[in-house]
């Protein structure tokens, strides 16, 4: 284990926090769950906002979570350039908090989707994909109702021209613009994605490609 520790933010209704702890451990990273009422992220080298249904996803996914006390610290942490990763509901929270542009709307098929999809690495300079060859194909599970990424045409153009689309679906499952599965901020230290890398870290399940992404995250800490 490295001495660097990652904070895994837990809101009421979050449910992937333990999976993220396990996934990080499988690539040798220690992590600690941080309750949403905490405000102190000192001593952490990275932050993960995991999947689930923060505050029940009532109103709109992430809409209430962004007002949780911990989020001011997460924003400060991210703006200081530290690795900040939002997975699934965590991605929704980061967009609501203004750390990432755009929004996640209901899937085009108007149905919840839990299935394994193929994505390709679309940029190699984010905290999640640094060092992974462009075009590398990964099999990672998705698990969401609101994963249909959307943003204004200007934003999409900016994301594309600044090389900030991190992962792209090979067979778009949810209607996301340009098949976007994950994006980063301009500095590349904040990444949000709908697929769950921690769900592809176990040879026994037949899914291991998430290890590559989490290893890149580890190396970014």
């Amino acid at each position: 284990m490295s001495s660097k520790r990652v904070a895994v933010v837990v809101f009421p209704g979050t449910n992937c926090e333990n999976d993220v702890v396990i996934g990080l451990k499988r690539v040798g990273v220690d992590s600690e769950k941080v309750w949403h009422k905490e405000t102190d992220l000192d001593g952490f080298s990275g932050v993960v906002v995991p999947g689930g249904f923060a505050h029940g996803d009532y109103l709109r996914p992430g809409a209430i979570a962004r007002f949780s006390p911990v989020m001011a610290s997460v924003i400060k942490f991210a703006e200081a350039g530290a690795p900040t990763l939002g997975i699934c509901n965590g991605f929704q929270v980061l967009t609501e908090a203004g750390l990432l542009p755009g929004a996640l709307q209901k899937n085009a098929g108007l149905s919840f989707l839990c299935e394994t999809v193929s994505v390709e690495v679309a940029c190699s300079n984010s905290i999640l994909t640094r060092g992974i060859e462009l075009g590398t194909e990964l099999k990672i599970p998705i698990n969401h109702f609101e994963g249909n990424y959307t943003a204004s045409a200007d934003v999409i153009e900016q994301l594309e021209s600044e090389d900030r689309v991190v992962l792209r679906y090979l067979d778009n499952p949810n209607g996301s613009v340009n098949s976007i599965a994950g994006i980063s901020n301009a500095r590349g230290n904040v990444v949000g994605l709908m697929p769950h890398p921690e769900r592809a870290t176990d040879p026994l399940s037949g899914l291991i490609d998430g290890l590559e992404l989490l290893s890149a995250f580890r190396d970014s800490l």
């Binding site: 449910n15 999976d19 149905s111 919840f112 989707l113 839990c114 698990n143 176990d202 399940s205």
Partner: peptide, 14 residues
């Protein structure tokens, strides 16, 4: 049908 259910949470599903 079952793709509408989360069947992988907790990383236990073999």
């Amino acid at each position: 049908i079952y793709s509408q259910y989360d069947h992988r949470l907790f990383l236990n599903t073999i």
